[in-house]
Write a protein that binds this DNA or RNA. Sequence first.
DNA 1: GTCCACATGTAACTGGTTACATGATTGG
DNA 2: CCAATCATGTAACCAGTTACATGTGGAC
Lengths: 180, 180
Amino acid sequence: MSLPHAILTALLEKPSSGLELTRRFDRSIGYFWSATHQQIYRELGRLEREAHIRALPAEQPARGQKKVYEVLPAGRAELTRWTAESQDPKPLRDALLLRLRAAAVVGTAGIESDLRRHLTLHQRQLAEYEEIQRRDFQPGKDTPQDRLHHLILRAGIDLETFWTQWLTRALQELEELPAQ
Amino acid sequence: MSLPHAILTALLEKPSSGLELTRRFDRSIGYFWSATHQQIYRELGRLEREAHIRALPAEQPARGQKKVYEVLPAGRAELTRWTAESQDPKPLRDALLLRLRAAAVVGTAGIESDLRRHLTLHQRQLAEYEEIQRRDFQPGKDTPQDRLHHLILRAGIDLETFWTQWLTRALQELEELPAQ
DNA sequence: GTCCACATGTAACTGGTTACATGATTGG
DNA sequence: CCAATCATGTAACCAGTTACATGTGGAC
């Protein structure tokens, strides 16, 4: 049950319409919690019904008209509650590791090119994060918000660093393996 | 669509019944692709209908009776195809990072104890992986299978190492933050 | 004969994905 | 007036989760 809380967070940072949220979920928050516009509209509907958010009064009745939402006190309270709640980490679920395990049984033929492709994608994501770090987190800016945002960004950087290193090693090992 | 392929891999490694598979999904393959017994039985049914696996002939007709499955040639072919297929990496989805982002808006009160708990859980998982490494991967054992399995295990070790380090740093930063 | 562990399943629900529908606004 | 873009939605589907149902076989 994280999507509604992701939306509440985004709306507290800045009141937005569904499409604006969708755009922000393509960067920023979406880097660790992605969502499509269909999910977002569905969830905005629920949050409005539960009186956690409301549409800014500007009498837009229907389709095609922009509808900007803001968080109500009840919504902020719910987000505060959820943030402090104890939650178990989800077990790892990674299709690439699964495919390697399968390759150990049926052979590694054909998997190498996709490993290389993944390596490129992770390198690109790492470069994007590092660019954000250069741009938004120069030493000196030091509000609590900045520190927390930087901490989160560093998790992204370290994860992408892990993947690039591990994939590099995996490709090396595959080369050294006797062909199957 | 990874679960059927996880099951095919497990059955190729060793023909098993549904409950035996469930047990193996609690360790081993389950370390990176977990599944409950309900999922597994549902999927075994589908795989049997599609003639990718079959129950070993021993005329067990129904409930309460053990039913051992093995992979048919069509199933092995499907797994080979899937393994070599090009697949996009799934974007990161992490509730803990989301909660930190929420905490940057509504305050960090209460989140510290859960970070500490996560740290303990990741340290425990790391210790478990390192124990497996000591036990199963002494230098010398060097078949292609061993090398691939070790490579996968190292991904687990490196990921848990990342989380323990990042969480340690996160707890430090939280301490230094002015109380909210 | 009762309880427990083994073993296989069904049903309902939830969240995420994919495909499609529809209206408003603006630039050429 | 037409196309593109902005904007909001509906519907069907699929995978994973949670709760529950049912039968077998052995230990006591």
